[in-house]
Simulated scan of single mutants.
Amino acid sequence: MKNTLEITPLKSWLDTGDKPLIIAGPCSAETEEQLVSTAHLLANTGKVNILRAGIWKPRTRPGEFEGIGSIGLEWLKRAKEETGLLTATEVATAKHVEEALAAGVDVLWVGARSTANPFTVQEIADALQGVDVPVFVKNPVNPDLSLWIGALERINRAGIKKLGAIHRGFSSYEKTAFRNEPMWDLAIQLKTACPNLPIINDPSHICGNRELLPYIAQKAMDMDMQGLIIESHIDPSVAWTDAKQQVTPAALAELINHLTLRKADSNNPSFEDKLAELRSNIDKLDDLIIQKIGERMKIAEKIGEYKRDNNVTILQVNRWDEIVQKRTKLAEALSLGSEFATKFLELIHNESIRKQNAVMNSQEQPTAEA
């Protein structure tokens, strides 16, 4: 996917030195005292660059707390004046954009629900025309890389060059330990497609609980993300929204203190030489794997011909179950994750089915080169 984004580097508008960008604050601005007191505690940690707070909250069902509304912008302004922290909030309509900018909010972000709707994103983009403000775009609720990039492009074409992405995980039917599945591969694909785009991680929404935050935050740093956006409340036990995933400012400081920060590159020539050697070995193995998969698919085509000639269905459930059981055991013996092995086998199986289906429904016999 071609990268068409024109990006101003993060450090040109907010230089955090060799430390990650940290955006923190309550999920929702609830009261003036709650927001300002939390802001002071966060500022006192010396770890936070930007204060975040939800002013308008798009809830799944009506009747739930949907944000304090515009009055909260005045509280953000006061918090900024008293602490010196920059401020950030989510916008979901053109009116939100106008009110937030009028109140002096420094950074805006587009939420996951909004990113999923190109009409909403375009409305926000139109309201940002001619404005010089940093904007972050969260990934859409569902795992759709094109939708994520499309939202970034719409904001970028409105003239926003101080642009970034927020990886907050994706909805999944599978129940796991996470509120939203990280699906790191999609974040990696975004980094590959848009290498100059700053990407920060939202462990709060990925985890859904504070116990897993350190694990995801460290993983994000190891994936070379530029920062974190974490929900922090003066007293999470009484938070009006997402109480389980918020942490106190003190707990946030402790989490950040325990992060291991690694460099993206090394200036050590011997390290680079050894790394190049190991990568060369991987390249050779990757080529061999692709060749072997190609050979496997040739055999799958022959099986398709044999099934066609004998009027047998493509899918053989018992055979598939046998493959999964045997190969996953082998994968575990080789210290490969069972989830990886199952997904890999499913991809191979789906391609085999596709090949056999093409053979069965073609008028001509496939050639060796097909």
Rank of each mutant, 00 (worst) to 15 (best):
L42T: 09
Q34R: 13
D132I: 13
R59F: 04
L85E: 07
K57P: 03
S70P: 02
T60Y: 06
F136H: 06
P118E: 09
F65V: 03
V121R: 07
G104H: 04
R113S: 06
P58V: 10
G69E: 01
V131R: 12
L86D: 10
V137E: 11
A94W: 00
I166L: 13
Q34M: 12
A24M: 13
K77G: 05
K138E: 13
I71H: 07
I155N: 07
L51W: 14
C27S: 01
E98A: 05
N117Y: 04
R52A: 08
S114Q: 09
T60S: 15
L163M: 09
K77T: 08
S70T: 15
D106E: 04
Q129F: 11
I68K: 01
V141T: 08
A102I: 08
F65L: 05
G54S: 01
A100M: 04
V91M: 09
G63A: 06
V91C: 02
E33G: 01
W56M: 01
R113C: 00
T87P: 07
K47F: 00
T31R: 02
T89R: 11
L42F: 09
K95S: 10
L85N: 10
V36R: 14
N139T: 15
N142C: 01
A103W: 03
H40F: 14
D126G: 05
I166C: 11
V91D: 03
L152S: 14
L41V: 00
A103R: 03
V105A: 05
R52Q: 06
T31D: 04
L128P: 14
D126I: 00
V48E: 01
E66V: 01
R59I: 08
G159F: 14
S28I: 00
V110R: 09
L108Q: 06
I50M: 11
S37M: 10
C27D: 01
K80Q: 15
K162S: 01
W75L: 11
G67P: 02
N44C: 04
G69I: 03
T93V: 05
I155G: 04
C27K: 03
G159T: 14
E81P: 00
L35G: 13
A79D: 00
L108E: 10
L163A: 01
L152F: 14
F65G: 02
A116N: 14
L152D: 14
L42I: 10
R59T: 05
D132T: 09
I23A: 05
S70I: 13
A125E: 00
R157D: 15
W148E: 12
R52F: 02
T38D: 02
T60I: 08
A39L: 07
L76F: 09
A79I: 05
V97T: 07
A112G: 13
G84Y: 11
A92Y: 06
A24N: 12
T45L: 14
G67N: 08
G150F: 08
A116G: 14
T60R: 13
E90R: 06
N117R: 12
F119L: 06
I155Q: 08
L101F: 08
W75T: 07
A102Y: 06
S114V: 06
G72T: 04
G150H: 08
F136W: 15
G72P: 01
V141L: 12
E90V: 06
G72F: 11
G111F: 02
D132A: 12
L85Q: 12
R61C: 00
L76Y: 11
I68G: 00
Q34S: 13
F136Q: 10
E123H: 13
F119A: 14
G150R: 11
W56H: 04
I68M: 06
G67A: 07
A127Q: 10
